[in-house]
Design a protein around this nucleic acid. Sequence first.
DNA 1: CCAGCAGCCTGAAAGC
DNA 2: TGCTTTCAGGCTGCTG
Length: 274
Amino acid sequence: MPELPEVETIRRQLDPVLRNASIIDADAHWSDKFTPALEAVGSSIVEVRRRGKYLVFELDDGEELIAHLGMTGAFHVTPKASTEPPACNDYGTHVRAVWELDDGRCLVFRDTRRFGLLRVVVAGDYRDIPTLHAMGPEPLSDEFSGRTLHRAIAGRSRAIKTQLLSQRPVSGVGNIYADEALFLSGIDPRARRLGRARCDRLAEQIKIVLQTGIDNGGTTLRDYVDADGERGRNQQDLVAYGRGGEPCVRCSTPLRSIVLDARTTTFCAQCQRR
DNA sequence: CCAGCAGCCTGAAAGC
DNA sequence: TGCTTTCAGGCTGCTG
């Protein structure tokens, strides 16, 4: 559920407090989705960046620690205090990795459902992380526009929402913000062909809903909390996602919920055109 | 290469 | 009340 705005919110909190921190020890859950955490030991964090929904911890040895939050992933930094070397069990439930820093603080990764992922790679080499490797442009950059969206979906026959969730036409959009952007641009999520004009509208609304999400500190529906343990506020601004059966804010027709590619999809059959 | 879909996970909520 | 079933969903990897 963390999508671009949630990951960006966390990044903005982690970057200033983790710069120049040295990782002197680590512990990880046994799953090979999390054991790569140990490979970061001995390096210092240069900067915390983001690409789509992935956090990228740039290390000083030419490598990057990559983290995907899956559905329930969360990061936080403990205050100085430390007593013993870190162990996952010491920091509460569902801790999947702990990195001990040289000043006594710890970076802690929790992930209840274990849909998250940690990797250490040579900087920029994402061949082992297919979605990151083939990731489309950053939605809030000039690299993404109606023109690039139109070109990216040309010749493909899958529903537009499915294509958005694939991260290829654009990065960082998940189920919540896809439903919101499609609603606001008046496009049926099942539409399979979009002309340039509709791509322009959709690209514009994607930028707006993601920026609004960042400004609101993310959307909290269930598990999401930022690095300070705070919930987001963007759920108050949602007009489509999770509102099946409620009246459309534009035309009052009850919003319809369907399952598209195994994901709940809510839209207005009146306002959104195929 | 592409479309479609099962499987991975756990806890909350709904159903019986 | 307590047990069982359903649901949530990003991404991987398999199949046709």
